[in-house]
Design a protein around this nucleic acid. Structure first.
Lengths: 150, 150
DNA sequence: ATGCTAATTAACAATTGATGTGACTTATGG
DNA sequence: CCATAAGTCACATCAATTGTTAATTAGCAT
């Protein structure tokens, strides 16, 4: 593993950013500091960092994979109003244990919290939800009753 | 809403199928019974049925949206070995309640169980996992430590 | 310092899953 | 039986991501 400027930059950007950025958004930020950097390199590097256990891939089913340098056990909260993603300390969340259910050998349980973040609660107090946040790449043209398993 | 042969077919296929099919797989099945049916119509119809509350969209973060005619409250179990998805009766799973965590107004909690299904447990008993199931459209070229929040 | 070489980058094409756009067709009410 | 709005489908497009490969470069051995 060579220590290239691109890798240093990405590693830094990731660690000074708790917004769970997508590859694209990291690309935008990185491009400012290193014009010409390739989106392909972003994907490549993020994939490698993930393989090395330096970061987690988070797929909340809303279109693009997100990257989280927080490798500790934790869950995510997704604001359905603004789309923001926040880490949730597992200790403050109902802890679930692997076990067996219906004859399946459960090895891992994913939990995602959906709702409204503090900021949206305050700013949009009584208002109707104006924004329609992208929830899934497809089939979300209109507001659809959908499983929030993501 | 017109009762077209395409819609009847899809409705039936969905209800005689508990595999949580994707649009593509429904397309394949439907094409046998109705050659020439358009994939666009599949997507269109599934979207409409979902809008009408006739089925749920399920995004487990493994590439394609899946469709579930079971509209009751339930969760999903994903076999990481064969990719199969099974319904899990909420009553046999730890029930979670909406509440607040870290200042967020939690309105919904998604839970997904990962593990090995019965069949894989039996057939692959001691064997190494040979198949690499697609977990996410991207960044899953190699086995990557990833959040199973999907 | 200088050169080697395998690792890395980046340009570009390709893929996958899904949606946008009309033109053509067809249920269904009159 | 006809009109017409609704539905279907071929085709184009999009977004996210990966494949390919030629050019570049970090890191090591001189």
């Amino acid at each position: 593993m060579k220590l290239t400027p691109q890798r240093q930059l990405l590693f830094n950007l990731l660690h000074e950013n708790d917004s769970h950025p997508t590859a694209e958004s990291l690309f935008e930020i990185a491009s400012k500091q290193m014009p010409g950097i390739s989106l392909r390199t972003i994907y490549q590097t993020l994939g490698e960092l993930a393989e090395m256990g330096e970061l987690q891939l988070v797929d909340l089913g809303n279109g693009a994979t997100r990257f989280d340098p927080n490798m500790g056990e934790h869950q995510h909260f997704v604001c359905d109003s603004c789309g923001a993603i926040h880490d949730v300390d597992i200790t403050s969340a109902p802890r679930l244990r692997a076990g067996s259910a219906d004859g399946f050998a459960v090895e891992e349980i994913g939990v995602v919290f959906h709702g409204r973040c503090n900021r949206c609660n305050l700013s949009n107090q009584g208002k109707l939800e104006s924004q329609q946040i992208k929830r899934s790449p497809g089939l979300q043209a209109k507001k659809i009753k959908r499983v929030k398993s993501n």
